[in-house]
Amino acid sequence: MTPREIAVLVLSLGAVFFAIVAAVGLLRLPDIYARAHSTSKSETLGAVLALAAVATSYGLGHNTLKVVLLLLFMFLTNPTAAHAITRAARERGIEPWTTEDEQ
């Protein structure tokens, strides 16, 4: 295996790991706000790592540049989507879940 293949493999594994974390978080966390944490952060990193793996496998070149642009858009759009969803939830008057001892 060439070093590049190893790097691609490591990045892909990272991507899979964080995508799984996002999915588990989506199932385990209590309410829409907390779930949005999981989807906005872990999902972003998962997608970004996957794209980084793609970029690495292309090597330096024009396609890589496009992938890097895609990556940038992920960084911009993912938080925005999470923001839009939670804001909609807030406008519907959904109360965030809190632990009992906190008031």
Partner: peptide, 18 residues
């Protein structure tokens, strides 16, 4: 991400949302 991963995968789910 490591923090979130830790929290999400922790059996007790140690969160205090606010």
């Amino acid at each position: 991400n490591f923090q979130i991963a830790y929290i999400v995968l922790h059996p007790a789910l140690p969160i205090q949302p606010k």
